[in-house]
Design a binder for these strands. Structure first.
Lengths: 161, 161
DNA sequence: TATTGTTATACTCTATAACTATA
DNA sequence: TATAGTTATAGAGTATAACAATA
């Protein structure tokens, strides 16, 4: 895994960090995708959509799902269609707006998701078991700063538009 | 960006960390992909391949590129073909093994890559400018542990095969 | 006019497996 | 037999843009 042997720069710290972060994420993500496919015959975006719904028993509107999953609307329609076909999620009318509806897990979808989530958590715990609890916390905090800074930049950009 | 509002667990620290890491990586990666497309009409895998070559003036064999980019061989062939067509990389015979050759940057490819790399670095520096130098270092170190642990697991698995 | 969601389309990236040529 | 690389294929994942219905 020598992806990191990539950049050249006079200010290489951030670059080195980014390449390592990318490598780590890809390692874990690849593992998760493979396991989801092998054990549950599903994909990461499908799992992600169900995970979003799991936290919102009342369901989420398509545009909210789109925002949270960071993909455009057409894709959410496609993934939702698949999950509806399999009886794992359902579309429910929103009263007061006949254009929109909420997508929510069915009982069966929730049951299946719970099983998947338990396995998923085990994979993730294994991926980070090289770190102590304090290190996990520290990493979480540092990444929080990265995220926060990104959001600050995005907000600033919006204001000038 | 509420991707993190996803997991549920009795052992949620690792899961929270993973979701945040995935979010951060996607934020930066999306930005990089967009900029590469808009400013240089190229893609991340193409940039990545050229970046691998930039560090090896003598070139790299296909299987080495495949390993470093963490993708299977057929894909490397495809990306290489594109770059050859555009005159950015070239295939050079390996003496002593007529099955193999090395792929290396052409003069033009190197020149273009240098331009792209300078821009790329600026995007990355911006993405992490919310962190101090010490925090960047700390993050890099922690991710190093994650990577190391993954490699240790992979090695252990190999030995039992 | 703007918004919600769908449809249609096209493209990149990917893995798998069968294949050719050489070792 | 094994290895280096290619080809063919199928599928995931994505963005874009045109569209219908409703606000």
């Amino acid at each position: 895994m020598d992806m990191e042997a990539r950049g050249h720069s006079e200010h290489p710290e951030a670059l080195r960090l980014w390449l390592r972060m990318l490598t780590c994420t890809q390692l874990v993500e690849k593992q998760v995708r493979t396991q989801l496919r092998e054990q549950f015959d599903t994909t990461l975006p499908r799992f992600d959509l169900m995970a979003q719904l799991e936290r919102s028993p009342e369901g989420l509107k398509m545009n909210e799902l789109s925002r949270r999953m960071m993909v455009t609307g057409g894709n959410v329609t496609g993934i939702t269609d698949q999950l509806v076909t399999e009886g794992l999620v359902e579309r429910v009318d929103v009263e007061g707006d006949r254009r929109a509806y909420r997508v929510r897990l069915t009982t069966r979808g929730r049951k299946l998701f719970d099983e998947m989530a338990a396995e998923h958590e085990a994979w993730i715990v294994a991926a980070f078991e090289g770190l102590s609890a304090r290190e996990v916390e520290s990493l979480h905090k540092l990444l929080g700063k990265v995220k926060q800074h990104h959001n600050a930049l995005a907000d600033a950009k919006l204001e000038t538009t």
